[in-house]
Design a protein around this nucleic acid. Structure first.
Lengths: 260, 260
DNA sequence: GAATTGATATCGCGT
DNA sequence: ACGCGATGTCAATTC
């Protein structure tokens, strides 16, 4: 199958041809010795060493060291690439327009280069997100409390977007802030910001704020109590087969037997 | 130089040997057709397609589609990898202990595999960060205002960590919240949280809060004014040669002529 | 190990 | 294009 090509210990001329052939259509992978310079929102330099360089057809540019999940330098999708040979080095230049950012890689040696034509028509199907928590609450409002009525989802106010706005059995406004994982100080501040806006509009005693999350950090719990906000423990749903398929566009393949 | 090895269109036996030889010592790169299953903090599946798979010696596991900066699935450093051949497929299993997370890749075809021994002793040298803004303010407090005296950096209170705590010319407490980029609603809430704690302690009129950033979002600007907080426009310093070297451990190489 | 925050955060969804 | 918030955020630092 002709979807992968490679060269090993190429000359600069070989490299130039290789890049010309495959750039912007294939994923390009370089195992190379290089220096890296970045300037844009910040500025950095990285002295010479061996790194893994990836250039995707969408303009994504990644430089990985042999450690960590994060690339040491990068450019996002949409960046434009330029290259040249100077002083016996291959120079890669990736430019982002807005904000203006430039990533320059000076490659002294390429050990191995591959080009890979990715045929991939599938999208990730994820469950256990905050938006699935919201759906669950709308379907079964009693998960929050007896008599809770959800009214609006992602309700916009000047100070942000309320996850779920509803009313309780005594007709008070209820503002829900959802977190799919342990909630921190920032989550409490966010909820407080929304509650304050509503209290200014409808009066102190007509508004409640409830943080909905699996748990709270210590600091968050203290602040929550001081601010007279409430907490409702709730885990995000991690659907089995049925829920996993909730957002699936294609259902071609069944989940592996072993997986369940 | 024997730091890179590769096989093309390998049999499962070839692959098994290849992985055995290089895993945990080399960066392994697979260009492959695969399905991916993840379960841990959330849960996902990805149906069959071509992807780039990277396994670093530190346990980092990355699966990249041909688009976007982010891997579609991953495991962080420290994850443990297991592999086997089942039903004519290579199965890669990467396990993280805390939180318990499992990433399973079912590979039906490997087009090309490389192993790369990365020799890299250099660390990234970055300038233009928030911590450099703080240093700049300590060195030249007048950047904030005439008579400002910084007292403490990263001062901890129950509701968080104050970037810079100081006093103004009238001996009022001044709380600075720094942002290296445009500040949003969240930044204002954060500053407000700190200011409220100090006002409770020292009284309404003995405390000021100043957001220090290059700019504000519209919503942030409105909320800032409503809350009687202040704004001081300041850009993070992106050092030239001198500042660039501020945190440098090794100064082996000079910045490329062309770069400056 | 828990908590807190920064990041060249990236990404997606609104207006 | 800008504003805003979620993310399996990651990674560093401090307690």
């Amino acid at each position: 199958m002709g979807n992968t090509f490679y060269i090993t210990n190429p000359t600069n001329e070989d490299l130039n041809n290789f890049i010309n052939l495959y750039i912007e259509r294939y994923i390009l992978i370089l195992l190379a010795r290089c220096k890296v310079f970045y300037e844009g929102r910040a500025k950095s330099q990285l002295e010479e060493g061996d790194r893994l360089i990836i250039i995707k057809p969408d303009g994504t540019f990644l430089i990985h060291k042999d450690k960590k999940r994060e690339p040491v330098n990068w450019q996002p999708p949409g960046s434009k690439i330029f290259w040249s040979i100077e002083r016996d080095c291959l120079i890669l230049n990736s430019i982002r327009r807005k904000p203006r950012e430039e990533l320059k890689v000076v490659i002294s040696r390429v050990y191995h280069a591959c080009a890979f034509k990715c045929e991939d028509y599938e999208e990730l199907n994820l469950t256990g997100s905050e938006s699935e928590m919201a759906e669950m609450i709308f379907k079964n409002p009693n998960l929050i409390e007896e008599g809770f009525i959800p009214i609006s989802r992602e309700y916009q106010i000047p100070t942000g977007i309320i996850d779920i706005l509803g009313k309780d059995k005594d007709n008070r406004w209820v503002i829900l802030e959802l977190k799919r994982r342990r909630a921190d100080l920032q989550a409490i501040s966010q909820l407080k910001r929304y509650v304050e806006y509503f209290k200014n509009k409808y009066g102190e005693y007509r508004v409640r704020g409830i943080l909905v999350a699996p748990s709270l950090t210590i600091g968050a719990e203290k602040l929550l109590k001081e601010e007279n906000l409430e907490f409702k423990k709730l885990n995000p749903p991690k659907g089995g087969k049925r829920n996993l398929n909730h957002n699936v566009k294609s259902k071609k393949t069944a989940v592996l037997d072993e997986w369940l």
